[in-house]
Design a protein around this nucleic acid. Structure first.
Lengths: 221, 221
DNA sequence: TAATTTTATTTGGTATACCAAATTTTTTTA
DNA sequence: TAAAAAAATTTGGTATACCAAATAAAATTA
């Protein structure tokens, strides 16, 4: 059987993928430990294990990188997660910001075949309810050309494509403002004083802090 | 939070329920260990743990019994298992004898609310694809008045209601004969020589061994 | 560059859930 | 009832995945 990937290892791979592909700076022990909420000693141990399985490699400067195999594994886990999120919102009528935790559990059910069937049942969705693209069964993913709201041009109309922060507090906050992937709005201006952004959405004018605006990814409408 | 029930504990409770309610003889350490495929030492340890959580009690003669709380827990796990089985067959088009392993994994996803929604999505099925009744959200289950094929009356027509053995080999065997819950057949006779039963199903005459017949539960058609 | 801070690693420890083998207790059988 | 068999339990062990605290190494800052 060789070595198969445990539940916990899956979380490391998935988190590594997210850190590697969504952040600019390099991923080290500490960053990974912080993201996972674990002790650096624990993470070090596991990273070594993953390295021995050729799923990650650690460079001279201690940067942790996914190998091709590790990346593919991560993308297949992300595929499962996102397909389950689609199921939870479309079929079980959950709100898009309620599904993360449940998908987190469901993604660890082991069966590629079941996921392929789930994908067919959901009629091959391209994006999850947060606007993230769903990798195909070979681990290929399409990247989207979106920019952060903070760096968008004022006076234009945009559509929310994705959210760079998946924390509950962030998603809840946006939920209360009724901002979600697919939402259309006009960017009125960036305010020099505090770098906040003012938008009009559904006839309401809303001001979003710099931190919030940076985590909202948009495309021109 | 008190104590919450772990994945492994759930398997013990579920297995205890099955042994207690589907078998006649009392359930002891050895029987439970054999059913779970575990070492008696392991089972003893866990049974003590479950007892300390008031989920089981061990009588003077070492019989292990579920408490009310343990029984309810077991039934809620069985509820999850059976609802997922319905999902897998009805929505993902699995055959009724392919879903057990997958449901085994899915049943451990923790969310009563999700299961209630799943039940609604599936339009409140009363039975799983094997013909077993699905407990409601309070852990209530309807028992059915079925008899084993081995003790049914010859010359009459029956419908397969349920299967008392869920092993792969048994289910595969029945699958090849195209016998499943819902199948209709006529019981021709019980053969005195080896206690086998002869039935006609879909115009074919089939002889079933005593062991097989005992594990097929039927109701008059 | 020396001091400080940050990062990486080691060390010794925990809990869970499992095991094999030895032993004790109970039950069965001769 | 004594011997044998079966069941229950104890003992000492494993692997996984986690931790806190100590130490070592590297990077940063003064």
């Amino acid at each position: 059987m060789g070595h198969f990937i445990h539940l916990s290892e899956e979380n490391y791979l998935k988190t590594l993928y997210k850190l590697t592909f969504k952040q600019v700076k390099k991923v080290n022990n500490i960053a990974l430990a912080k993201e996972l909420g674990l002790n650096p000693a624990t993470v070090l141990e596991m990273v070594r294990k993953l390295a021995s399985k050729k799923l990650v490699k650690v460079s001279g400067d201690k940067t942790i990188q996914l190998t091709e195999s590790g990346k593919k594994n991560a993308l297949l886990i992300i595929r499962k997660h996102r397909l389950w999120e689609v199921f939870l919102t479309e079929k079980l009528k959950y709100a898009w910001n309620e599904v993360h935790e449940l998908a987190e559990q469901l993604e660890h059910v082991e069966s590629e075949d079941m996921i392929d069937r789930l994908e067919a049942f959901l009629e091959y969705p391209a994006f999850d309810p947060h606007g993230d693209p769903i990798p195909d069964r070979n681990g290929n993913i399409k990247s989207k050309t979106s920019v952060s709201l903070a760096s968008a041009v004022h006076g234009k109309t945009y559509i929310v494509i994705n959210l760079a922060d998946t924390s509950d507090s962030f998603l809840d906050y946006l939920g209360r403002l009724n901002i979600k992937p697919g939402s259309k709005f006009k960017l009125v201006e960036h305010n020099q004083y505090d770098n906040s952004s003012t938008i009009t959405i559904q006839k309401k004018m809303i001001s979003l802090s710099e931190k919030v605006a940076k985590n909202i990814l948009v495309q021109p409408a």
